[in-house]
Nucleic acid binder design. Structure first.
Lengths: 333, 333
DNA sequence: GTGAAAGCGCTAACAA
DNA sequence: TTGTTAGCGCTTTCAC
């Protein structure tokens, strides 16, 4: 790895390293002519600055991290695109870190960030995450954190979320309107904000009609979820409607219905929180609560960069709620 | 960002920084007792080594990059998981870099890597990438590159691919067997290895039966693809079978069929290269060529790490072909 | 078994 | 306008 560095440029041009450095950063101290010569040579020699040296020196990396459970999820992949689009514009690099819905992984990742590897963090907590010590610790080291989608209550950080409560309410109201009386809510975890808020909306809608709750928590394993849903639908007095709070649960419901010979929407109606592009081509087409994933990503990144640029900004007052949309399709009509 | 560093540990224990450094790296020179004291204090103070300092010093980052077109694709998201699983085991970090199927983006990303930001690169080239100068340049700087899935011909780098030719052949043969005579191949780009190899397999199968070719190249914009497919299916003498070489084209075909009131599989049969978990729940369920995404990711990472560990290894002889599987479903039966 | 010191490539005081 | 120099935190000879 023979690297062209500032010193090499300096020698070639008979200038000092500091002049080169300043010229490259377009300092006002340097004459236009020198700048020009430097830039030209740098381009010719294909000079690329060593990011480790400047991060070490400058105590900032111009890296931000996205910490999410999984990349195989249409919400997260769209959100990543939104985040990237604003980070790139401001000259930041984006590190994608996957927790696989595992609390220990999440802890380890954030622990590492204490080293200064990244200047800030955008995160959606794992479904296992119940307490925020690891997040607090990072914030204590002055690494700003912004939650998007899945926030953790009790941690003082900006949060960019969708209107989970209202969406849960709307989705449930829709199922009731379509004739469901026995609606089950499939949650992800009793700690997760999104799960809880969506569930609260569900409860409110059910309560208003005097209907009974039924809440089931799924795991992170597709196999477990499959048996869970199958058991739910095999019961006597099985639900006639399901509100699934995350995308991956949709598959389990479709599969279970197929295996149990239940037909959607006649026997069971389904609404799922999902950003899947092919929701309309499922059989039956899937009614979704679709989140503004790209916008949420953009907003979260913009908020983080704001925090990064003027450190004094107070994280409160930065929260944002962007509404989701209920898209009615065959699975609930 | 007040950071605990080696110096702080040294002061606390009345030892020199070099002793601390050696103790942390478990050097044989250091007594067990000292090691113990150091590790204990490090844990207590929550010490995290500064990765920039050690990368700068050691001239290696223990970072590897995944350069892919898009993360919203089930093949790539599964492959990422495979790569991560082996990289993590060897203490490497993974940077995911998105080209958005854009050649300039890809160039810029690789250019940056010349700085030593990563020790090695795993890549699937963008659909726009026709020549490999940027890749060659990186290899010239002794940054090893391993292609996975989408390789670029003419670049001397290891490649982990699936049996594209055979899969294309099998898929086409299957469509012919199901009665199709007028089969169109939807490619991504005339440069892309996967597209070409899959197409070659298609051609062979068609040739064997004396059937005519019809090849259409799609773009990276969903809207364009939609009109392209719609036009194709609106033609007089429209195809009665389609072999789509990448996942995202499936959506376009389903949509176009719906709009044109063509029924699958009666009017048009479809086979698509895809790793979508919900392929079975589409309407009609989608016949897929499913790639061993996770395995390919693992193999690619293992190959790269091999190259990283003993630099003398010759990239030839490292290639690998892992077969895909044709899963017959409703869209072609 | 431990320590002193050089230096990775870059930036920013401070000098000239 | 340009140059000298001192580190950023870490690893690694080489000396003790």
């Amino acid at each position: 790895m023979k690297q062209i560095n500032i010193k090499a440029l300096a020698q070639e041009l008979n200038l000092s390293v500091s002049t080169i450095s300043k010229a490259l950063r377009d300092s006002y101290e340097i004459s236009d002519e020198t700048k020009h010569r430097v830039l030209e040579l740098a381009a010719k020699l294909n000079y690329t600055p060593n990011p480790y040296a400047s991060s070490l020196r400058g105590k900032k990396s111009r890296n931000i991290a996205i910490v999410i459970p999984e990349v195989a999820d249409s919400f997260f992949s769209q959100a990543i695109n939104g985040i990237e689009s604003v980070a790139k514009g401001k000259g930041y690099h984006v590190l994608i870190c996957l927790t696989h819905e595992n609390y220990e992984h999440e802890q380890a990742i954030l622990k590492e960030f204490q080293s200064g590897r990244v200047d800030g963090v955008l995160m959606s907590v794992s479904s296992e995450t119940a307490s925020g010590g690891h997040i607090q610790e990072l914030i204590a080291k002055e690494v700003p954190v912004v939650f998007f989608d899945r926030a953790l209550n009790g941690v003082a950080a900006a949060r960019i979320v969708t209107d989970d409560f209202q969406s849960g309410y709307n989705a449930t109201a829709h199922l009731i309107e379509q004739g469901c009386r026995n609606i089950a809510f499939l949650g992800v975890s009793s700690q997760l904000s999104i799960s809880n808020d969506r569930m609260a909306g569900y409860r409110k809608a059910m309560e208003e009609k005097g209907l009974p709750f039924r809440e089931v928590y799924c795991s992170s394993s597709p196999e477990d979820n499959h048996t869970l849903v199958t058991d739910l639908l095999r019961q006597h007095g099985r639900p006639d409607g399901i509100l699934a709070s995350v995308e991956k649960l949709a598959t389990s419901v479709y599969q279970a219905c197929a295996e149990l010979q239940l037909s959607m929407p006649a026997d069971v109606k389904l609404v799922c929180f999902s950003n899947l592009g092919i929701a309309a081509m499922l059989y039956p087409s899937l009614t979704t609560v679709t989140q503004p994933a790209f916008e949420m990503g953009k907003a979260a990144a913009a908020t983080l960069l704001k925090l990064l640029e003027k450190k004094h900004t107070d994280p409160s007052g930065l929260d944002m709620v962007i509404p989701s949309e209920l898209i009615r399709r065959g699975s609930s009509l």
